[in-house]
Amino acid sequence: MSDQRFIIEMGMGNDQYGQDYQKAARRAIEDAIRHSSIPMFDALGLDHAAMRVEVTVGVQKPEAIDCAALTASLPRGTVTVTATHGGLNVINPDSGNVIVIATAAVEAFLPYQG
C-alpha cells in the first residue's frame, strides 16, 4: 500500500511593505508548522526520515518563489515544495503599497503502518 497522509496544516503569511513573495511564503509555512506537534514518532519509535512532506504555497507570482530555499528550511522528512498561483495581493488605494499574502498547505505522509 502507498503512503498515508497523517497530517495537514494550513498557514498564512504576508509581507506588508516589501512585496517579497518569498518572505510571505516562508511565513505561511512557518505559521502552518507552528501548529503541529507530532509525538507519535517517539511514541511509536518511528524515524522522522521516513516522513514525506509535501508543501504547496499559493502566491500571486509563483515564479518569484525559490522552492529549493523553502525546502531547505523545513526541519524533518523528505520535503517537496511547490509554488502555485493563489494567495492575494492587496493594494492600499491611498499609497499604492501592495501587501503580499501567501497561503501554505503542509502535508505529511508515512508508509502504511498497518
Rank of each mutant, 00 (worst) to 15 (best):
I99H: 06
H35N: 06
V53W: 01
V59K: 11
Q60W: 02
T56V: 15
D66Q: 08
G58A: 07
A68K: 12
V57Q: 08
V53D: 05
V55N: 02
V79N: 03
Q22I: 05
P62A: 10
S73H: 10
G45I: 10
A49P: 01
G13R: 03
T56H: 13
A72W: 01
D94S: 11
G18T: 08
A32R: 03
G77P: 05
A32L: 06
Q22P: 06
T71E: 15
P75D: 06
R52W: 05
V81W: 01
A24H: 05
A25D: 06
T82D: 06
H48F: 12
V55M: 01
I38H: 13
G87I: 04
T78L: 10
V98L: 14
P39A: 06
I91P: 02
A50K: 14
T84R: 15
Y21L: 05
G58Q: 11
L44G: 05
R26P: 00
G13S: 06
E63V: 04
T84Y: 02
V81P: 00
Q19H: 13
G11W: 03
P93R: 07
N14F: 12
P93S: 03
S36P: 04
H85W: 08
R27K: 14
G45K: 03
I29C: 01
N97P: 00
N14P: 00
M10D: 09
N97C: 10
D47E: 13
Q60M: 14
Q60F: 04
A69I: 06
G13M: 09
A24I: 07
V53I: 10
T80N: 07
K23R: 15
I65Q: 00
I65K: 04
N92D: 15
A83P: 02
M12R: 12
M40A: 15
T82V: 11
V90K: 14
L74I: 14
P62T: 02
H85P: 02
T78P: 00
N89W: 06
V55A: 02
L44V: 05
G87Y: 01
D20F: 00
I99T: 12
G77F: 04
D42N: 15
L46V: 08
N89Q: 15
E9C: 12
L74C: 09
A24P: 07
I65M: 07
V98M: 13
L44D: 10
T78G: 02
N14H: 12
A50W: 11
M10E: 12
M12N: 05
R76N: 11
D42S: 15
P62D: 09
I8H: 11
V53Y: 03
C67Y: 04
V98C: 12
